[in-house]
Design a protein around this nucleic acid. Structure first.
Lengths: 109, 109
DNA sequence: AAAATATATCGTAATATTGCGATGTAATAA
DNA sequence: TTATTACATCGCAATATTACGATATATTTT
């Protein structure tokens, strides 16, 4: 037990859940918000900004990168991370679709 | 270790993460989508619909209820669950605000 | 080449989540 | 009252997440 039964659900449901999981940590929300507001967005910045250890932030960045929300380009010794605009819009639409599904006709309550 | 350092983040960041966590499971997405589409939405329904045990579904329903996304009214022997429209819109706006924050001026990449 | 800087990965401890059988509870039916 | 029906909760095992020190890697500087 303890393992999610992904085979019971549609691909869309599994994907949406997987993406939501990336949003499901305040540090990753904070990283995204920092990337949105800042133009010079390197890991070192974030270690100063948030109070977490370098290893921890690097791990959060990897999760954001794995789901495609951010991308990093090597800039000399450091890495320049930023939001992937295409994927951002894609994910936005996924959530939008879920939210706009209700109310449909508002039948019961 | 292993415990999220909520004190490092803003209330909004923590709340958004907490809500995202509820969306971060395909069964809960499936439950929400079922509630959106159906008008007669009781737990028994869901046990048939999804392939999970009654105890498991009840637990997922509780998490959805705790964050306020759904509410249940006792209907004789069964419980009539449905989406809380007010909270739904509230949560939608929270995500909307995050998503629409980018692109701001689209400075770097 | 050696040192410094920035980030990634590994390993591990603490904690959280998932799933479900067993059992509890509360309303209706017999 | 006893049985039935529909959930809810408990307790536990399996697995996942979080955080971080230690260490690896890779680029620039000296």
């Amino acid at each position: 037990m303890g393992v999610t039964k992904t085979d019971l659900f549609t691909d869309r449901q599994n994907e949406l859940a997987k993406i939501a999981k990336v949003f499901a940590h305040p540090a990753r929300i904070a990283i995204l918000e920092h990337l949105i507001q800042s133009n010079t967005c390197i890991n070192g910045d974030l270690v100063q900004e948030l109070g977490l250890a370098q290893a921890t932030i690097s791990q959060h960045l990897r999760e954001l990168k794995e789901i495609g929300l951010i991308k990093g380009s090597i800039e000399g010794v450091s890495v320049n991370y930023c939001i992937d605009a295409i994927r951002w819009a894609e994910v936005q639409n996924l959530f939008q679709d879920l939210f706009s599904g209700f109310p449909k006709i508002s039948g019961c309550c």
